[in-house]
Write a protein that binds this DNA or RNA. Structure first.
Lengths: 140, 140
DNA sequence: ACAAATTTGCAACTTAGTTGCAAATGTATC
DNA sequence: GATACATTTGCAACTAAGTTGCAAATTTGT
């Protein structure tokens, strides 16, 4: 299982034409296993004894962003959150739901958000992201 | 005109049962005149010679947030952006559009975003915010 | 004008993220 | 697997954004 994620991470990096380094494999592995957007320090925490400098983690995320493998999530928090660009179309990312009671964030990957049409008063819309707030099943 | 904004700001503060202080009037005035979400330092810049400590500005925004007069905008920037809760319904804020070419952000106040229905797999959705990306009229 | 409640400013601090550069690692080629 | 070149890494020092605690100042209701 563990090895599988590693292999998958390596394949992904290779096909994105990125140098396949220990740090990148480790970060990508964590993102592959994650079910929600993570902050730099959360990623660092999940690295366990494989320690990488925070700047390395930031730069890895930056590289993954550049090739479109990773997206930033827009949450009501000070730190940036990153996640694999999964369950996303070219024009729309899956919505993120944050519970106003417990504060936890969930990816609503199966939810269909109506898309806005391509142009509006001269604005050419390429991408759409939705943030939802309310009560999660545990708090409702 | 100037005086009108002041009066308006005072009235708003009064009806929100907030202490009507010079700092709050000044910040609210700026938000009333603004056509897009502003950062703390942008507000400070627009205060001109009326100087207030940044913490005062932050706390003012915090007070206005608490009574629902102000919202945070979700943009791809490090600093938080605040705007008056205008052109917003209880359940949905107007979308923010950021141009990927010039970087400017616009409020698309007249745009109707389809609302997600109330509940989804146990998630009770109260509020929805949309972020759009693409090319603005000037860059398209 | 007074007392109580609230807000303000300051200085010091935390947290998130960035810079520059030399050392280390990865990749392609022989 | 050694070489040369390109890219990435780690460090230390830094910037930017936002927060804290508290005493002094301001606002409000009476």
């Amino acid at each position: 299982m563990s090895a599988n994620f590693d292999l998958q991470a390596r394949r992904i990096l290779k096909s994105a034409k990125l140098y396949c380094t220990a740090g990148r494999v480790a970060v990508l592995r964590i993102l592959l296993k994650a079910d929600k957007p993570l902050r730099q320090d959360e990623i660092a925490g999940r690295l366990g004894k494989k320690r990488f400098d925070k700047i390395t983690i930031y730069r890895t995320l930056e590289s993954l962003l550049e090739v479109g493998l990773v997206h930033k999530a827009f949450l009501d928090e000070r730190a940036r959150h990153f996640e694999l660009a999964r369950n996303c179309s070219e024009t729309q990312c899956h919505p993120h739901f944050t519970c106003t009671s417990c504060g936890k964030t969930h990816c609503l990957t199966e939810m269909a958000i109506p898309k806005v049409k391509g142009t509006h008063k001269g604005f050419l819309i390429h991408r759409q992201q939705t943030r939802l707030e309310g009560l999660c099943p545990a708090c409702a």
